[in-house]
C-alpha cells in the first residue's frame, strides 16, 4: 500500500511540475529545439530545476534502502549500443515534430483536446509495436 501511495504522490508531483513548468506547451518545447528560429530557453531551467533534487536523491541512496522496501537500481550500464542511438534518433524526431514527449503527453491528457488524445493513442501503439520491431532489428543486424 505504501508503494502505491508513494507512486501516486510521485506521479502527482511529476504531473504538476510538467504543467507549471510550461513543458505541456508544445510551442515552448519546439521553441527550445528551434535554435535557428525564435529560441526559447525555458527547457534548460526546467531541466536544471529537476536535476537538483534528483542529484541529491542519488547521493542519498548510498548506504540506504528504499523506504518502501526492495533495493535501489543497479549502477547504470556504460555501453552505448545501436538501440540507444537509433531509438533516441526516432524519439527526438517525433518530439520535435509535435513538441510532446511521454511525460507531458500524459500530464496534459485532460486539457490537450482530441489532439493530445490522438498523440497519446499513437504513442501507445508505438510502444506496443516496439518490442517486435526491436527483435526484427536485432535479427537484421545479426544477419548483416
Amino acid at each position: 500500500m505504501l508503494r502505491i501511495l508513494l507512486a501516486l504522490f510521485a506521479g502527482g508531483l511529476f504531473g504538476t511540475g510538467l504543467m507549471f513548468s510550461g513543458m505541456t506547451d508544445t510551442a515552448k518545447v519546439q521553441g527550445w529545439l528551434d535554435i535557428f528560429g525564435i529560441w526559447d530557453p525555458t527547457l534548460a531551467f526546467v531541466m536544471g530545476g529537476a536535476l537538483l533534487p534528483m542529484a541529491l536523491a542519488w547521493r542519498l541512496t548510498q548506504g540506504r534502502r528504499p523506504a518502501a522496501g526492495g533495493s535501489f537500481p543497479a549502477p547504470p550500464h556504460t555501453e552505448l549500443d545501436r538501440r540507444l542511438v537509433l531509438g533516441s534518433v526516432l524519439f527526438g524526431a517525433g518530439w520535435g515534430l509535435a513538441g510532446l514527449c511521454p511525460g507531458p503527453a500524459m500530464a496534459s491528457l485532460s486539457y490537450n483536446g482530441w489532439q493530445g488524445m490522438l498523440f497519446f493513442a499513437a504513442m501507445a501503439c508505438g510502444m506496443l509495436a516496439a518490442p517486435r520491431l526491436s527483435r526484427h532489428l536485432d535479427r537484421a543486424v545479426a544477419n548483416a
Partner: peptide, 24 residues
Amino acid sequence: DWIWGLGGGLLIGLGGAVFLLGNG
C-alpha cells in the same frame, strides 16, 4: 517563464526523488 520553468522543474525532480528514495 524561466521562474515557472525552474519551479516546475524542481517539482519534477522532487517527484523523481520520491519515486527513487521511496520505491527504489
